[in-house]
Nucleic acid binder design. Structure first.
Lengths: 219, 219
DNA sequence: CCGGATCCCCAGGGATACTG
DNA sequence: CAGTATCCCTGGGGATCCGG
């Protein structure tokens, strides 16, 4: 394993998770929970299968993930984050917060999956009315689904489909993001091609934290 | 520039700072402030000069650093973080907090510089007596010097030498780290080869935050 | 001495094909 | 479905060289 050979916590951390794709693998495991090889591959468009295989092996050796042979009816191996791996969440949150500004330019060639947006949303918003009953927002795109759950645990993101979401958002990721950050209102988002169905009031539950929503920094 | 091509804030962030050495360059600029090419190279033992040059160019294009021609008597170009670059600090803090556990094993071949430890310390401690007058701890190793400043701004780290530090620590990095995290007391640190001179009481000003100092996680 | 640029070589990453 | 095998290529490591 390649190392920076520096007695520095940051360098040591990067020794383990600084290689290409590694933190994105952690992102997927964090959002999807225990999942199969194929689930990871689907959540990481562009990764080569040998590379994913190699990363999983390295991460297991480093103690960041565990590999478990699930009994039937699953009958396959599941990958899951260990506590040490889950402890990387603040790193992903910080990276995600910093990277938000970079989403201002929407590139047509970029892949998109709704759980990425759900996670971003859970990072930059808090529950605006913690006492109120829990609500669920469904995000749909590219034939996949993710959820933003607002409840006692705060704002949480996960992959999956809800039976009866309070609100469903579907459409161009940029307009959904702008709506969730509070950069635009629902009318503008709809005009930008977003389809929102359900109880639109649940959007008021999502309170974007300060210091986001500014235009992309040019300097 | 190589990109993950994913419309996800984490992936976009890694597009810019995910390559080898990049975040360590940011670490140095954050700790050293505006500095010369050689200062950066010294703070990044192991980096090839062409690679450092390349990274600086990329970071400038991305708007994370600025290059400035300083007038005499400096008469050289200084590199400095832009506001966007400085905004990466939470990322480095999170990585540093996570990487702390990895410092449990001390490898003889690893390079060490005192400002790395100073920064780590500023991440995992708070001022235990905010009302008290400011104090300065000097760290010495490998012929270099760094400072931990405890004052109105909290606990801050920077490269440099103090005229009259309240406390000076010199010796094996592991024992200094263990002392600062509270894992061992001063007597044990001294026994482990640490040399402490000055007012030893200032150590009580550094209050390690919870959830650190545990032994290295094996699972 | 500082601030790089150039060159060569190899390991790690990307794409695709193939197999249990 | 869950990877492995293969081939190619790019980016990184290391040394050296060069202008100011």
């Amino acid at each position: 394993m390649r190392s920076y050979r520096q007695y520095c916590p940051i360098a040591r951390a990067l020794d383990l998770v600084g290689e290409r794709w590694t933190l994105l693998v952690v992102r997927e495991l964090l959002l999807q929970g225990p999942c199969r090889f194929t689930d990871l591959r689907n959540g990481l468009p562009g990764i080569a299968s040998n590379l994913l295989s190699g990363r999983l092996k390295e991460l297991e050796e480093a103690g960041l993930i565990s590999r478990e042979e699930a009994p039937p009816p699953i009958a396959t191996t599941l990958y899951a984050l260990s506590p040490t791996g889950r402890a990387l969440e603040p790193v992903l949150r910080a990276l995600g917060m910093w990277g938000l500004q970079l989403l201002a330019d929407e590139r047509e060639e970029d892949a998109f999956q709704p759980h990425w947006l759900a996670y971003a949303s859970s990072c930059f918003t808090t529950d605006g009315d913690p006492g109120a009953p829990p609500v669920v927002i469904q995000l749909l795109a590219s034939g996949r689904a993710a959820l933003i759950e607002i409840g006692p645990g705060g704002v949480q993101a996960r992959v999956g489909r809800a039976l009866a979401p309070d609100l469903t958002l579907e459409g161009r990721p940029r307009s959904a993001l702008d709506l969730l950050t509070g950069a635009i209102d629902l009318a503008a988002a709809t005009r930008a091609g977003l389809i929102a169905t359900g109880n639109l009031d649940v959007l008021t539950r999502l309170r974007p934290i300060a210091s986001i929503g500014r235009p992309p920094v040019e300097n």
